[in-house]
């Protein structure tokens, strides 16, 4: 079985094979080390000219990639830990995301910034965050996150083929996960409906009459899936899970369709839930034509992520917190 990590490496490799304009830039990318989380392992050996290992200069790496993109190349940047994206914000917001539109569509900026996010590994407050919400809602920036129901390799290849800047969020725990097979394992009784081709949304339902719709993305789909089975066995609550590959901008339709049946919405993300991804979804649903939708959001508590496991477990959304939110919502 292939892990998400291997799929991502395959996606990068295929993009580099198929398009000589694709370059990788980032810290410690060269073999034998092959990058901090090994997504780029083996690639510098195959394409030594096009893998550029860099000094610790996140802002300039993204700036250089932006310049390369504006002159016809397709650079892919790896930011070693998602926590370090704070250093690239000016380049993304005031440069890469602006040029195409501000120059009246005379240029394009096809860059991908890949970065591992997320906690649950005891890395502490500056190496465990899920900071993707900082990129949500920036005009001109697309934010994607792979998951185990879709094809991570294809998602990454599509991002690299995109003509606009993409931020690609990879949860650290997702790397070791395997792709799901429909009709097997967790999904033996599940049905999957895919919306969209390039950056799909997946609705996973266990009944034609779901009682609750759970919106999530990335690794947290793994946790939500376990909770879905628990609430089914414990209280016979049928869930429909809506897994977004594209976080921003996003298409509300698949979720709205599910809510027209369930009328209960739970959003689950690992970043802090205040003013987060789930907040925007809740607002959109409140503004929509759907009536009588009860809503709960689950995310991290408003603390820096503690180093010790006991506190980290309390701060990040756990299976039991998600389950409790479902039971509260259904009361």
């Amino acid at each position: 079985m292939t892990t998400v990590l291997q799929h991502l490496t395959d996606g990068l490799t295929r993009s580099m094979e198929g398009d000589k304009r694709v370059f990788l830039l980032g810290e410690d990318l060269l073999d034998p080390y092959g990058g901090a989380f090994k997504v780029t392992r083996g690639i510098s050996t195959r394409f030594p000219e096009r893998v550029l290992t860099t000094p610790i200069s996140e802002a300039a790496i993204v700036g250089i990639a932006t310049g390369m993109a504006m002159r016809g190349l397709r650079p892919v940047v790896e930011i070693m830990f998602g926590d370090f994206v704070t250093l690239i914000m000016d380049q993304v917001i005031n440069h890469a995301s602006k040029f195409r539109w501000v120059y009246n569509n005379n240029v394009s900026v096809p860059i991908v910034v890949r970065t591992p996010m997320g906690g649950r590994r005891g890395y502490g407050p500056t190496h465990s965050q899920s900071l993707e919400k900082l990129f949500l809602g920036i005009p001109g920036v697309r934010v994607l996150a792979p998951n185990t129901i879709g094809d991570p390799a294809l998602l990454l290849q599509n991002a690299i083929a995109d003509d606009d800047p993409v931020v690609f969020i990879e949860h650290k725990l997702l790397y070791a996960c395997h792709r799901l097979e429909i009709g097997k394992g967790d999904l033996v009784d599940g049905e999957v409906e895919q919306f969209g081709e390039r950056y799909p949304t997946y609705n996973i339902r266990f009944s034609s009459k779901p009682q609750i719709s759970i919106a999530t993305y990335g690794y947290n789909f793994e946790i939500v899936r376990k909770v879905a089975l628990e609430v089914l066995y414990e209280r016979e609550i049928f869930t429909e899970i809506i897994v977004f590959s594209q976080l921003s901008p996003f298409n509300l339709m698949p979720l709205a369709e599910s809510l027209s049946k369930s009328h209960h919405l739970l959003t689950v993300e690992e970043g802090s839930s205040n003013l987060g991804w789930g907040s925007e979804i809740a607002a959109r649903i409140a503004e929509s034509d759907l009536n009588n939708v009860k809503i709960r959001r689950v995310g991290a508590l408003d603390f820096p992520i503690a180093n010790t496991k006991t506190l980290e477990d309390l701060i990040l959304p756990s299976q039991s917190v998600i389950k409790k939110a479902i039971y509260d919502l259904m009361e």
Binding site: I61, V62, G67, R71, L73, D90, H95
Partner: peptide, 16 residues
């Protein structure tokens, strides 16, 4: 933006 254009120009030169 002051200075933000400098890595971009550097990247353009690298691409060329």
């Amino acid at each position: 933006i002051q200075g933000g254009i400098v890595p971009i120009a550097t990247g353009m030169a690298l691409a060329e």
